[in-house]
């Protein structure tokens, strides 16, 4: 069944609220306004103000309240408008949500789900456009996932609600209107496994969230040049699915990591490191990266487009790691 990423999220939220009385949604503008990205449109009318709660503009307070509710036995879904704003709640995330199981010797669980938008491309300037999911992926004690398809948007939420620990779902802001095929739940969704979105043999292009579509577009272009790029959607940023990543790299012998985060100290750096550690002797070229320019994401469209990873840049990086070598392969 085809639906937009937004509709997929709304379907998932509706189902979660219907299925489990412990589930409730809270965040800025999730109720009357229907959510900054309209993911929760109509849910206030359907489930009432106790279960779809508008909160004050204090991320620290409502993320903290979510942690408390989870500790108290509820299954809260907290929506943070953008990852930029979530920084105000980092203390609650890093010092409370991520630590309580460990510090209580396993006595406490924080079954919290936090959804937030990430990424640029909508000309909303630097304070709304950054991709900081890599920072969250740095923190032990929480799980971080990034649905890149409508299907994952539909089914990652119930899977996250089944987790006993905090799960952070990063929804790329450009994906909400994207339409995709949503299938039935294929049993319990493997939440933390990477997926090969397009098989190939010449190079592994590793991406997540909003970059997956760009990587697929690049692969389409590269195919016309005789280059078969394999596109790997990370899906889970913490834990990383090392086995699938390394298996693909060992087959293709080259890797390009696409990450809308900044290059320095990024998730892409972590992935490149793991490839070096686990598949060094299978590498036929240095691991290449396509990241956002190291600037606050600009407002003007041409500058924003230039700052973010784009299919052309991914193609160039792939050609760079293949160089004339692929020409022979293409002929063969």
């Amino acid at each position: 069944m085809r639906m937009t990423y937004r509709e997929a999220l709304r379907t998932a939220l509706t189902e979660a609220l219907s299925a489990d009385p412990r589930v409730f949604l809270m965040g800025e503008d999730v109720g009357r306004y229907g959510g900054a990205y309209a993911a929760s449109k109509g849910l206030l009318e359907q489930f009432g103000p106790d279960r779809v709660r508008d909160t004050p503009l204090s991320e620290s307070a409502f993320v903290g309240a979510g942690i408390g509710a989870a500790l108290g036995g509820m299954r809260p879904i907290v929506e943070v408008m953008t990852v930029n704003f979530s920084l105000l709640a980092l203390d609650q995330v890093v010092n409370s949500a991520a630590t309580l199981r460990h510090m209580s010797g396993g006595q406490l669980s924080v079954p919290l789900v936090v959804r937030m938008a990430t990424g640029g491309g909508r000309q909303v300037a630097a304070q709304h456009s950054h991709s900081l999911e890599g920072w969250y992926a740095h923190v032990p004690g929480i799980r971080v996932v990034a649905p890149a398809t409508a299907h994952d948007a539909r089914w990652m939420l119930p899977a996250a609600l089944r987790e006993p620990d905090p799960v952070f779902i990063f929804e790329h802001a450009m994906l909400y209107p994207e339409e995709g095929e949503v299938g039935e739940e294929p049993g319990p969704l493997p939440l933390f496994a990477a997926a090969i979105r397009r098989p190939g043999r010449d190079v592994t292009v590793i991406a997540h969230g909003g970059s997956v579509g760009k990587a697929l577009a690049a692969a389409e272009q590269l195919a016309t040049e005789g280059i078969e790029a394999e596109v790997l959607d990370l899906r889970s940023l913490r834990p990383l699915d090392d086995a699938t990543i390394l298996e693909s790299v060992r087959r293709c012998h080259r890797a390009v990591v696409v990450d809308e985060g900044w290059r320095s100290g990024s998730l892409s750096a972590e992935i490149a490191s793991r490839i070096s550690e686990g598949a060094f002797f299978e590498l036929d070229a240095p691991v290449a990266r396509v990241c956002s320019a190291e600037v606050p994401i600009p407002y003007p469209k041409h500058l924003e487009d230039t700052a973010l990873p784009q299919p052309d840049g991914i193609c160039a990086a792939v050609r760079g790691v293949l160089q004339p070598a692929q020409a022979a392969g293409a002929k063969a």
Binding site: P140, P190, L191, F192, A193, S236, R238, P239, L240, D241, D242, A243, T244, L246, R274, E277, G278, A279
Partner: peptide, 18 residues
């Protein structure tokens, strides 16, 4: 050694060590 150093935290997807 590489896999021993970088295990994903409690991999729930039964991802085998590399």
């Amino acid at each position: 050694a590489a896999a021993a150093q970088v295990p994903p935290p409690t991999p729930p997807s039964a991802a085998a060590p590399a």
